[in-house]
Amino acid sequence: MRKPVSAFAVHAVLALYTALALFPIILVIMNSFKAKRAIFNTPLTPPMPWNFDPIGYSKVFGDSAIATYYMNSITVTVGTIFLTLLFGAMAAWALTEYKFRWNTALAIFLSIGIMVPIRLGSVSIIQLVSDLNLINTLTALILVYVAQNLPLAVFILSEFIQQIPRDLREAGRCDGLSEYNIFFYIILPLLRPAMATVAVFTMIPVWNDLWFPLLLAPTGGKQTITLGVQQFLGQYITDWNAVLAALSTAIIPVLVLYVIFSRQLIRGLTSGAVK
C-alpha cells in the first residue's frame, strides 16, 4: 500500500486530542459564569443571558486577598526572571569569554542544578531561610527560584553568547570599552531573544509552583496566587460557583499570556531542544 496516510485520519486524531486537551479548561471557564442550577443541570451549555451569574467571581474578589496574591505572584515571577537573566547572563558571559583556571570546573558545578531538583534540599532551605529571617517573605521565594533557574539559564545563554561573533566583542575592545561596558552595551542587548526564551522557561514553573510557597511563605498574606487558590479551594470546596470562579481566575491570565507569547515559547522550546 503506497497510499499516504489519509489527511482526514490525521486531522481526526489531532482534532480529537486537541478537544481532549481543551475540554476541561473550557468547561471550567464556561461554567464559572453560570448560576449554580445551570452548572449542574446543563454543564455543557455556554453561559447565556438566562443562566448567567457572576456570584462566584464576587466571592473570589470579595476575598480581597486574591488581589494581594496576584501581586505577590507577579512580584515573585518578575523578580525571579530579572535576577535569573541578569546573573545568568553575567555568569554565562564570564564562562564563555574569559580563560581562568577553574572555568570548566565551574561550568560543570553550575550545570549540576539542571538535573538535580532543588526541592530535595528543602529541609535545609527552610532552616536557612529562617536563619536569614526571611520566612514568609517574597525575597526568600525569589532567591530560591533564582537558584533553581540559574543553571538552565546559564546553559542556554552560554550557547547564545558563543554564537555572537568574536569580532563584535573585539570591535568593542578596539573602541575602548571596558569589559563591563562590552557586556552591558554590546552583549546584553544582543541577548534579548535568548533572554525571552529563558524568561518563558523560568516564568511558567515559578508562577505555577506550589511547593516552595507552601514551605516558605504559607501565611501572612505572602501567598502566591497558586497557593492562594489552593487554600481558597480548600475552604470553599462545596461552593461550586466560587470554586469554578477561582479556577478561572487562575487560568485566564495564564491563557492570555500564553496566547500572546506562544510563538516565542514554542520557538524557544524548539531552539533550546535542538542543541
Binding site: 542544578g113 534540599g121 532551605i125 536557612l128
Partner: peptide, 13 residues
C-alpha cells in the same frame, strides 16, 4: 545565590 540556595541545602540535607 546558586551555592547558598541550591548546592548548600542539598549537601546539608
Amino acid at each position: 545565590v546558586y551555592t547558598l540556595f541550591s548546592v548548600y541545602p542539598l549537601l546539608d540535607t
